[in-house]
Design a protein around this nucleic acid. Structure first.
Lengths: 238, 238
DNA sequence: CGATGCGTTGATAACTTTCAAATTTAGTGG
DNA sequence: CCACTAAATTTGAAAGTTATCAACGCATCG
């Protein structure tokens, strides 16, 4: 559906120093655990950097899942193409988020860069070996899995609701994750949002418009959204 | 929504012998891993038995998650009540299935017996202690989590589809799990199915009727469903 | 036998998708 | 920097799907 893989050989290297230009890294996935430093630290220390231009594939469904990834900059979507041709997005990953966590040998979803993206990648085998010596790494992987599970379960609650509720819930989720206060810059397109929420692009667009008319949000540009009335959004979100 | 907890004191005891009357236990959740015996075995060996009459609560949302459960006989639903009063079912658990797995200290869902049900329960703390000595237990818990995650992700794929696709997918899933060949006896009501699939009871009923008209299934009684044409169901399920 | 709960069926309303077109935005080359 | 083209987003009208409200059938149980 999109262009092909893009790990340019010159883009992968081992950073001599623990990454310097890593963004604030509000890891949605790890920030709650107190000991959650070492996995993150390990990835910064021994992870390889790779850069992917916008809309290029990071890994494909059914490819061997040899690496764990952390977003350094940019953003990533995971997805699956359904038999009827529609695309279902599994999740969005922002700077600091970890993705590519698998339990089988192969990826169950494909991953693409939404914008020009830099990731840190670390071999699963390396990580497993480290986990053998440092128990906290294993615990963090376990915790990471648990949080991923919680996130997916929350998503189910979203998907059984109305279009308004899904969109409102999505906006509140993103507002929490991008940490721009009430003004959020969405990295993804309307189509991405639609495929994430199981709606059509038209319905997403109309719903956003109606939320703007209801004064719950403001749309300075199509990618920027200002939450004007969180109470209303929360009420809609139920 | 339903009656209250029902752990009758006389119903909990420590079996003197490794459970005898445990049914075939086609554990959907564990049957793929080769080493997946020891967790199961451990639960059989040191788990306490509890019996819950139909429609009674096993644990509630926000209660401390101190135990891990395995269904011995009967079946269980986990669920959450949404703010608008609707009930979303998180999953159905059949004999051999393990439920109650949590990562936080509290349950995120409530659990109820669908029919008169017997479960084995084991303290999380005990299990964690055992995992410290027997690494295979830890690995199994990890694998169990991974499979739970895969199941929930599959559910997302189901929830974004049409009513026909959801119902067809549900029937195929249940047919795999109850292992009655093409004739399956559903333990749950239409309302349970509806709340699982994010549909109304009327839509579920109509969809089943239309599948019967299309000769894809047969409905001898409302709880018994015969799959007549799996190809058609698979095609619908896409 | 009547009450009760569960499931089915029917009619209508509400919501979402589909198809089509207009509008805005972004990217490119002059 | 502007003009032009392509892509993304928004808007409109009609069709399709699902929910809602209401009634009916059927079985179980006192």
């Amino acid at each position: 559906m999109q262009t092909q893989t893009a790990v340019r050989s010159d883009a992968i290297h081992r950073p001599a120093m623990p990454m310097r230009n890593v963004p604030p890294a509000r890891s949605h996935a790890l920030d709650s655990a107190t000991e959650a430093e070492s996995l993150d630290h390990t990835m910064n220390l021994i992870g390889a950097v790779a850069a992917y231009p916008r809309n290029t594939e990071i890994f494909g469904e059914n490819e061997p899942a040899d690496y764990l990834y952390k977003v350094v900059s940019g953003s990533v979507r995971t997805y699956k193409i359904l038999n009827d041709g529609r695309r279902q997005i599994g999740g969005f990953y922002l700077p600091g988020d970890i993705f590519g966590l698998e339990f089988a040998d192969e990826h169950t979803l494909s991953a693409e860069a939404i914008a020009d993206t830099k990731v840190l990648m670390i071999k699963r085998r390396t990580l497993n070996a480290l986990a053998g010596r440092d128990a906290s790494i294993g615990r963090q992987l376990f915790a990471l899995t648990g949080r991923e599970l919680a996130r997916v379960q929350d998503r189910i609650l979203l998907l059984v609701q109305s279009a308004q509720e899904r969109v409102a819930g999505f906006l509140l989720e993103m507002a929490e994750r991008v940490s721009g206060g009430n003004s959020i810059e969405l990295p993804m397109s309307r189509q991405d949002i639609a495929d994430y929420l199981g709606l059509t692009i038209e319905t997403v667009s109309r719903t956003l418009t109606s939320l703007e008319c209801a004064a719950a949000i403001q749309l300075p540009t199509s990618r920027r959204i200002v939450l004007r009335d969180r109470t209303a959004l929360n009420r809609i979100n139920a």
